[in-house]
Design a protein around this nucleic acid. Structure first.
Lengths: 389, 389
DNA sequence: GCTAGTTTGTAAAGCTCACAGCGTATTAGG
DNA sequence: CCTAATACGCTGTGAGCTTTACAAACTAGC
């Protein structure tokens, strides 16, 4: 027997579905009365009542007894989602810094810790620093690893299905690091390792520049150029985790694009290689001839890869993010012109609104998605940290 | 009130869901006994029994009374999905031909009609020919327009959200043709106009070279080069319908790639421009020096665009289709080498197995998808042709 | 030809769930 | 103080699925 799908639903399953429906109606809403929930879900008031009480006894919701009532009529009891029932972690392991965010199930950030890291630090040193940041974040929020329901770590470079950056990565010696295995010593919950561009794209859709769009090309523009894709509202990983790596194609010029900025004539010797781009953008803003030309050539090269992505996917929005997005005022208009010239249908081009924390925020969001997925597929029995399968 | 989601489910809805579950279990299976359906859906035998009887009275299923039984025990009544309850059309409006396929709800083709068309024919002439082909296909199958539940028409060129090929199209004078409006005079059912590459991709996943994959890049290689994308098992249209049009980017060389074949030195003057490529492939197979070089250069240019798609999406399979897929023996290996050289992760590269009918087949499949979507979202009351919304 | 065994069809009992309806509690306003 | 409006809580009703039980139909083997 090919026992694949058990789609049949009986009464308990119906109750489960309606419970999830109530949970959905509870989340991302202010504390709600039974009548409001009834309207929101389409269920009858008595049904909502018993389900809500069940959620309270299970620990998924909490009750607010009526206080000062402003409306007419008998003051209503209010239910709210117990966002504190569980917590998730999102960590960005960057070249220069490690940033950990700890949030509740609403995605509200409870605590965050940021440490600077030497760009040349080897894997052992970086992993030790990661452990320290995570520990500090947990203790700072008064949590233990068992309180955490999902962990997502962002790294630079394409992440394969085993969670390793086997294709390439700018982190020194990082190619063979098995981050998930390293963290699984401390955490029993699901652990996901993901590419930083993809996570930044996720963040930008969550609470950034593209929260209204389902089809997004996110450009992470900095000394390295990368892309993250959201298609039909879902983060696109690729069959092997290498989606969005258009920069590897020499014809689209992403590899040499930042060189126009770094090698711009006129950069003072006192400016280090990491700050050269910022200097050039500033100089261009003040009318420096060579700087303006360098920015122009940079945008032209950036636009080729962007156009390849846009022509392939025909997105609604292109988000210009990454370190260079601070200079979006200089980039956006010429980038639009170039894309318009190269593409069939013109997408909106917007600047990132989240800045440098977008990667860690995206990691947080992916952790929340992981929790949600388990919640809404496996059903909700009691709020406990899920185990890895 | 932001009345967006009415997710609550009551008892009738539960019955509806289970009915759909039974329909799913019935489709693409041989006639099934109640016990088999019970196992397949997870529902109890009596529940399946009443639901199946309901489906029969509604006209969705038919009963096979037990005949010659081979097994032990009382011979079972068998139920089967009534694929003949409705029919769908898939039409390919090509440059040289128009092909219409008429199939039942199982996708089994009942009748097909193919007419040749002059490549220079204008819109009026082509539309008249289309009407004639559709009429012939209907009468040949003994059907009327009211028997048809969905119509999909494939055209060359990116199709915008209004169903027009406003960006570009090689069909003479076709840019402003509103095909959906033209057909809506005869058909009340949903009418979809879609790009030919996308539909060929759909067909190749349905019953072609990539039926096992969810992430597919389909290359339509001929005198024009195009691409269709399937991502997470879903056809990717793009926000404005222009996904996959990477060929519009000059840097990837798709526009000039077929020129290597057409302008290959040594092609006899007796060979027309449309047959030059076929001649070159044949000559290359027989060792003709210039022909081999032309094929090599063609593949190199084709591979640049393919690599752009592969790097962007990281698909599981690349399908080499279109007119040139008859010469896949010459193309596949060098194409693999080039993609491997340019990309991070190597996808499988396969030749199309459907040939020239793939576009019409894909149109058929999209019609079936359209019907299924309405079936499984709006619920099944009685088998009647759906109306356009 | 007859009996044991197996599977199907069908009916009845029981349980769970959601809904409709009604009475009660609480507040605002006249 | 009384009325209208709103929300809570309880009970009865009906729908739908499951389990159990039993009759019907067929094969296999003696």
């Amino acid at each position: 027997m090919t026992e694949v799908t058990t789609t049949g639903a009986d009464l308990p399953r119906l109750r489960e579905l309606n419970s999830l429906s109530i949970v959905r109606a509870l989340r991302n809403h202010p504390p709600s009365t039974v009548t409001e929930l009834s309207r929101r879900t389409g269920l009858s008031r008595p049904a909502v009542d018993v389900i809500a009480q069940g959620l309270v006894t299970d620990g998924w919701a909490s009750v607010l007894e009526p206080g000062a009532s402003s409306a007419v009529g008998r003051p209503a009891r209010r239910y709210q989602f117990r966002a504190g029932a569980g917590h998730v972690l999102g960590v960005d392991v960057g070249v220069h810094k490690i940033l950990a965010l700890l949030a509740d199930l609403d995605g509200d950030i409870v605590h965050s810790v940021r440490h600077a890291v030497d760009a040349q630090a080897g894997p052992a040193e970086r992993l030790a620093e990661l452990d320290e940041v995570v520990s500090a974040c947990l203790t700072g929020a008064g949590k233990t690893p068992t309180d955490i329901w999902a962990v997502t770590v962002a790294v630079t470079g394409a992440v394969d299905s085993s969670g390793r950056t086997s294709f390439f990565t700018p982190l020194p010696g990082w190619k063979s690091v098995d981050l998930a295995a390293h963290l699984s010593v401390r955490f029993d919950c699901p652990i996901v390792v993901e590419n930083d561009c993809k996570l930044a794209a996720l963040a930008e859709r969550w609470k950034g520049a593209a929260s209204d769009a389902d089809d997004i090309v996110y450009l992470l523009a900095g000394m390295r150029t990368g892309a993250g894709l959201i298609i039909d509202g879902v983060l696109r990983r690729g069959f092997g985790g290498a989606a969005g790596e258009i920069g590897a194609l020499p014809h689209v010029r992403w590899l040499k694009a930042p060189g126009h900025l770094q090698n711009c004539p006129g950069v003072p010797e006192t400016v280090g290689p990491d700050d050269a781009a910022a200097w050039v953008f500033n100089a261009a803003r003040e009318g420096h001839k060579a700087a303006r030309s360098a920015v122009s050539r940079y945008v032209k090269d950036l636009a080729v890869g962007a156009a390849a992505l846009v022509l392939t996917l025909d997105p609604q929005v292109v988000v210009f993010g990454g370190g260079f997005s601070r200079s979006a005022d200089l980039v956006l208009d010429p980038l639009r012109r170039e894309i318009e010239r190269l593409c069939l249908r013109m997408p909106e081009v917007r600047a990132s609104t989240l800045g440098a924390d977008s990667v860690a925020l995206g990691a947080l969001k992916l952790s929340l998605n992981e929790v949600d997925q388990r919640l809404f597929s496996a059903g909700l029995s009691a709020p406990v940290a899920p185990r890895r399968t």
